[in-house]
């Protein structure tokens, strides 16, 4: 009994340490974003400023002069469009494909799956110039549609992998029973497999969203204006231009991180069950 209590205390201490190591850098970024610039550049650093300064958020939300606010807001909109679009397409396409991998027997099944997964090993630089030309001839350069198009190619293999593993853990009997009742395969997929695969689907959504939100190199090369530039590109320009106004970079960074953090927190509990059942075993 005594040993168990001691272990529990040790575990709690360790958890605290981990939480602090994780929260400290992030927390400092939050504090820095509302610390006046003159305090940020004093040495020795004053950790808690004497006054708070929310002007950077005001600049980002309402500022228009010289583009900081406008660019940021446009980039936020673009990122949301690109991430949501990519997630939607990848999920629909991925669910269909994953069902085939998990439930159907066909020739080259393993080879095809490996081929999909192997695309992950291609570095993006290997594709940049030809892709640029394709997008240009389709008039998709500097458009969110074009980015969704190329991002899907990055995200779909992941979705296929997570979902097909999860689908395989759903007992066949469920589906067979439905099909004996006269439901088609597609019907079974929608009414039987999908509801049972909810954790796997949520896990896939989270992965897809984080991947699409984080994508940088394609956005860097294929977009240039407020019409399609995404947040990672906007932040990298931001950071290049206001190198020592760390507060402004921090404020932008926090806002850029908010959507994925919210998504991750909401879906986080499904990720464990979603992957535990299938993906990781695969």
């Amino acid at each position: 009994m005594k040993r168990a209590t001691r272990n529990s205390i040790l575990i709690h201490i360790a958890a605290w340490v981990v939480a602090i190591v994780i929260l400290a850098p992030f927390g400092w970024m939050v504090v820095a974003s509302i610390t006046p610039q003159r305090v940020l550049i004093t040495t020795p650093l004053q950790w808690i400023p004497d006054s708070w300064d929310f002007s950077r958020y005001v600049t980002i939300f309402s500022g228009g002069s010289d583009g900081v606010g406008t660019t940021f807001r446009a980039a936020m909109g673009n990122s949301i469009v690109v991430a949501v679009g990519t997630v939607l397409i990848s999920m629909v396409v991925g669910i269909l494909g994953a069902y085939a991998f998990a439930r159907l027997r066909f020739r080259f099944r393993r080879a095809v799956l490996i081929l999909f997964l192997a695309t992950y090993m291609l570095p993006q630089i290997a594709l940049l110039i030809p892709l640029y030309l394709i997008l240009n001839s389709l008039e998709l350069l500097d458009t969110t549609t074009g980015l969704i198009f190329v991002d899907c190619a990055l995200v779909i293999p992941f979705v296929l992998w997570i979902l097909s593993n999860y689908f395989m853990t759903i007992p066949d009997e469920l589906e067979e029973a439905a099909r004996i009742d006269g439901t088609t395969r597609m019907g079974a997929l929608f009414y039987v497999v999908l509801p049972a695969a909810r954790p796997g689907i949520f896990a896939a959504i989270m992965f897809a969203f984080l991947l699409a939100w984080d994508e940088f190199m394609y956005a860097l090369i294929f977009t240039s204006s407020d019409a399609a530039k995404t947040l990672p590109v906007a932040i990298s320009e931001f950071a290049g231009r206001y190198t020592t106004d760390f507060g402004l970079v921090a404020a932008g960074g926090i806002l850029a991180a908010l959507p994925p953090i919210i998504v991750a927190i909401i879906f986080q509990r499904y990720v464990v069950s979603g992957m535990a059942a299938g993906a990781v075993k695969g």
């Binding site: 981990v18 939480a19 994780i22 929260l23 992030f26 984080l210 939100w213 984080d214 940088f216 947040l231 990672p232 932040i235 990298s236 950071a239 960074g253 926090i254 850029a256 991180a257 994925p260 953090i261 998504v263 991750a264 927190i265 986080q268």
Partner: peptide, 11 residues
């Protein structure tokens, strides 16, 4: 724990 994972690489 999930926070750093969600933080965009550039940020």
């Amino acid at each position: 724990v999930v926070i750093p994972w969600a933080l965009p690489t550039i940020v």
